[in-house]
Design a binder for these strands. Structure first.
Lengths: 146, 146
DNA sequence: TTTTATTTGATAAAGGATCTCAAGTGAACA
DNA sequence: TGTTCACTTGAGATCCTTTATCAAATAAAA
């Protein structure tokens, strides 16, 4: 990926072999609105309020393409579904073990982790992810009320 | 879970509401033999050489139960399949982005990560995972040969 | 405009994991 | 050492997420 593939938050820019379609524009806009790290089906629901005829496959297809191009972030940690984030700067996440909700953490990213890792493995290290898990405020409350 | 649910590597111990069946014994034995973090279908294949009539559902069911009881570890980070590990002590993993293979890392577990995390979120923090990703030696070689 | 390669929507299909339930079986206890 | 019964198994159906297929629609270059 070269610099020309960078896109601003709300406006897609023209790239090689990449058309700016209303579907893509709306998917990015809706994803940018929330900070809830929605799964593909949730993005589908959000987008559908504005484009009722859009297909689920189109949403999957474009989330994938945008993630490949660094326009959005695919969060592929625990849980059954992949989630998506319009914020592409590296950061850590926390996932609720009760409801699956995912939030951002502002624990600083440990870049030196990767040098440490590279020294202790034969893999060519490309990156790392940290996922915290715990119980979100809502689920703590729900448990307490039961 | 109380202490009575702890099991040694190769011998299941009796627990409340938990029968020691040949299937469970063999699943644990086979998982203990390897350090390749197999997915459920791979455990199924290994177990099937010894118990040809075992069902895939039984393997899934028991891996899940054993993970819930802390007898084995369910590795639920990136990738499409959940993987399992007979080593339950906390440690980090690295996953090959080409072939999906998972190996152990001996980067020290940063326990203080969790105190740092707890201070910056409203979640009740239960733990954390670190997953490195990169290209395994085999896939590096395969790429080079192409 | 016209052209053309890309994209869409609808649908099928793949793949992983879970559920259901009758039949089977550990293990407590008589 | 049986008998009993709750737990477990195997087989299959089913669910859920994601990907593939393909004719029709459509951005965007010419």
């Amino acid at each position: 990926m070269d610099k020309s593939t960078q896109a601003s938050l709300l406006t897609l820019e023209r790239m090689e072999n990449f058309r700016i379609t209303p579907q893509r524009q709306v998917i990015l806009e809706e994803l940018s609105k929330v900070n809830s790290h929605p799964a593909a089906n949730e993005v589908f629901d959000m987008v559908r309020t504005r484009l009722p005829r859009i297909g689920l496959g189109t949403v999957y297809r474009n989330l994938e393409i945008m993630a490949d191009n660094g326009i959005i972030l695919k969060i592929d940690v625990g849980g059954t579904q992949k989630r998506f984030d319009a914020i592409v700067e590296p950061h850590y996440h926390i996932r609720c073990t009760e409801c699956g909700r995912v939030d951002d953490m502002d624990v600083p990213v440990q870049k030196e982790f990767e040098t440490m890792a590279a020294a202790s493995t034969d893999y060519k290290v490309q990156g790392h992810r940290v996922e915290f898990f715990g119980i979100c405020p809502d689920c703590q409350k729900a448990k307490h009320d039961t």
